[in-house]
Computed example of a mutant assay.
Amino acid sequence: MTSDEIDNVDKGILYLLQQDARGNTVTEIGEKVGVSSSTVANRINRLEEHGVILGYHPIVKYRETGLGHHLLVTATIPLTDREELLDDIMEVSGVVSIRELLTNSENLSLELVGHTQEDLEESIEDLDKLGVHIEQMEIMKQERSNPYNHFGKEFADEEPDG
């Protein structure tokens, strides 16, 4: 799917899904972008099939679940065999996300969680065994996200808060 194939309705749908995928029904999205709920459902299916929408993921406050240790890791992996290595990294206990970066070094950002410091240390050791070179580790306090505002806030016909 090319960017030319994504019209204003798609942009409005993407914006609203990023804003609250769980809370916005296809009927509500349809009302906001000016199409029927069946059109919204068809558009969402098309966007999923073409790999534009990869999934729907909650933002979890890990501390509230008893996973009080939340770590961001910057690492370097060899460029060769990286696809296979990324799959192996996702299997390491405690790894909840991976971001591959386009750079020679520090080309990986990992998010890890654990009940204890020992859990994280075990995860780091497992990553090391895979050939992941840890560059930096930081404790994460919180995460916030926001929908990309150029995806179609203006096409979602939302009423301003207030």
Rank of each mutant, 00 (worst) to 15 (best):
57 H>I: 09
39 T>C: 03
120 L>Q: 08
110 L>E: 14
89 I>S: 12
129 K>L: 06
124 I>V: 05
104 N>K: 09
63 R>S: 14
105 S>N: 11
134 I>V: 03
83 E>W: 14
1 M>I: 15
149 N>W: 10
160 P>C: 01
127 L>W: 07
47 L>E: 06
100 E>P: 06
139 I>V: 11
72 L>V: 08
1 M>F: 07
96 V>C: 03
22 R>H: 14
125 E>M: 04
79 L>Y: 02
43 R>K: 00
96 V>H: 14
76 T>K: 02
67 L>E: 07
78 P>L: 09
1 M>H: 05
57 H>P: 00
31 E>P: 07
8 N>I: 04
9 V>S: 10
149 N>H: 12
93 S>T: 14
150 H>A: 11
24 N>T: 02
73 V>T: 00
41 A>R: 07
2 T>P: 12
88 D>L: 14
65 T>D: 02
66 G>E: 06
54 L>A: 06
131 G>Y: 10
31 E>F: 03
36 S>M: 02
92 V>Y: 14
138 E>I: 09
123 S>L: 04
20 D>N: 13
107 N>A: 11
22 R>M: 14
57 H>V: 03
93 S>V: 12
78 P>E: 15
107 N>R: 00
77 I>D: 03
9 V>T: 05
10 D>G: 01
21 A>E: 05
154 E>L: 07
80 T>V: 11
62 Y>D: 15
148 Y>T: 07
23 G>D: 08
81 D>R: 15
89 I>W: 06
113 V>R: 01
119 D>N: 00
128 D>Y: 05
160 P>S: 10
24 N>Y: 06
91 E>M: 11
75 A>Y: 09
69 H>P: 11
38 S>L: 10
13 I>H: 05
30 G>R: 09
30 G>D: 00
36 S>F: 02
6 I>L: 10
93 S>A: 15
162 G>S: 10
68 G>K: 09
153 K>E: 11
55 G>Y: 06
121 E>C: 04
6 I>N: 14
47 L>P: 09
135 E>K: 11
162 G>A: 08
35 V>G: 06
79 L>I: 01
38 S>Q: 15
26 V>D: 13
25 T>Q: 04
41 A>V: 11
98 I>M: 06
30 G>F: 00
31 E>T: 10
123 S>A: 06
14 L>E: 08
143 E>V: 06
10 D>K: 04
87 D>Q: 15
162 G>C: 07
141 K>M: 06
102 L>Y: 03
14 L>F: 09
98 I>D: 07
60 V>E: 11
136 Q>W: 13
128 D>W: 00
122 E>R: 01
78 P>C: 07
134 I>H: 02
100 E>K: 05
81 D>F: 15
76 T>A: 00
130 L>V: 00
23 G>E: 03
120 L>C: 12
47 L>C: 05
129 K>P: 09
58 P>F: 00
79 L>N: 07
97 S>T: 08
16 L>P: 04
60 V>K: 01
103 T>L: 03
